[in-house]
Simulated scan of single mutants.
Amino acid sequence: MCGRFTFQPNDNAEIKRIYQLAVDNGYEPKTGEVFPTDQTAIVKSGDNQVQVVTMKWGFPGFKQDQNIINARSETIMQKPMFAESFRNRRCVYPTTGFFEWSEDKVRHRFNYGTDPETLYIAGCYKVFDGEPHSVLLTTAPNDSMIQIHDRMPLILQKKQIKSWIYDQKFAIDFLDSPMPMLENVPLNN
């Protein structure tokens, strides 16, 4: 399960460009550490090309103040809460890494390396009461993650973003893709 990630435009030129696209479109994405319910930068379909907007991270849950932030890639097409969104409104979370906590409560940062590289996470979204909300997709962990957590984000390469958003066959096939190996950096806080 991915419960927090980073969006650091000051430390990453690609994220800075994405951030600026959101700002140019009239949005103010949360920067730094992003928490559930924050307005986060999202790449989604536009009229002729992808566009960067912000959305609240998490679907409203079944209980008051409940927030569902992740959807399992293995069951997304069967779950009524997510299936229609996955079929019709896929999106991508641009990040500079994500966090997980081990059983002994140590926080670990994951990315391709120790620098805040751009890491894209697959997602989908839906409009609730006139406001778009998004969830990110998780999958079974690979060897770089399994010692820390039993889930990991469904990670896309930059060249796969348009296919994920616009090509349903690609998106369905990608649900079972092996994930890239990531660097695990234990943090003290």
Rank of each mutant, 00 (worst) to 15 (best):
M1Q: 05
M1V: 14
F5A: 14
F5I: 07
T6I: 10
T6F: 01
Q8V: 05
Q8S: 04
P9Y: 10
D11H: 05
A13H: 10
A13S: 13
E14N: 14
I15C: 03
K16F: 13
I18H: 06
I18G: 05
Q20T: 06
Q20E: 12
V23C: 12
V23E: 14
G26P: 02
Y27N: 07
P29Q: 08
P29H: 04
F35T: 11
F35D: 10
Q39M: 07
K44N: 00
K44H: 00
K44F: 00
K44P: 00
S45D: 05
S45K: 04
Q51G: 04
V52T: 14
V53Y: 03
T54S: 04
T54Y: 02
M55F: 01
K56C: 14
W57G: 07
G58L: 11
P60S: 09
Q64T: 12
D65I: 03
Q66M: 12
S73F: 04
E74V: 02
I76V: 15
M77Y: 01
M81L: 13
M81V: 09
F82I: 07
F82S: 06
E84M: 05
R87W: 08
R90G: 13
R90L: 06
V92M: 02
V92L: 03
Y93D: 11
P94M: 09
T95I: 06
E100G: 08
E100N: 08
E100A: 10
E103L: 03
D104F: 02
K105W: 07
V106M: 13
V106E: 12
R109D: 14
R109I: 15
F110E: 08
N111V: 15
Y112K: 03
G113A: 08
T114Q: 12
T114D: 13
E117T: 07
E117H: 03
A122H: 06
A122M: 10
G123Y: 01
C124D: 11
C124L: 15
Y125R: 04
Y125P: 05
V127N: 06
P132W: 06
V135I: 15
V135N: 11
L136A: 09
T138N: 04
T139L: 10
P141M: 01
P141H: 02
P141A: 01
N142T: 11
N142A: 09
S144R: 00
S144I: 06
S144K: 00
I146S: 11
I148R: 09
M152Q: 13
M152A: 12
L154N: 13
I155E: 12
K159V: 08
K159F: 04
Q160K: 00
Q160D: 11
Q160M: 01
S163K: 07
W164S: 02
I165K: 04
I165D: 03
I165G: 00
I165S: 02
D167W: 02
Q168Y: 04
K169W: 05
K169D: 13
A171F: 01
F174E: 07
M179Q: 12
E183N: 13
V185W: 05
N188Y: 03
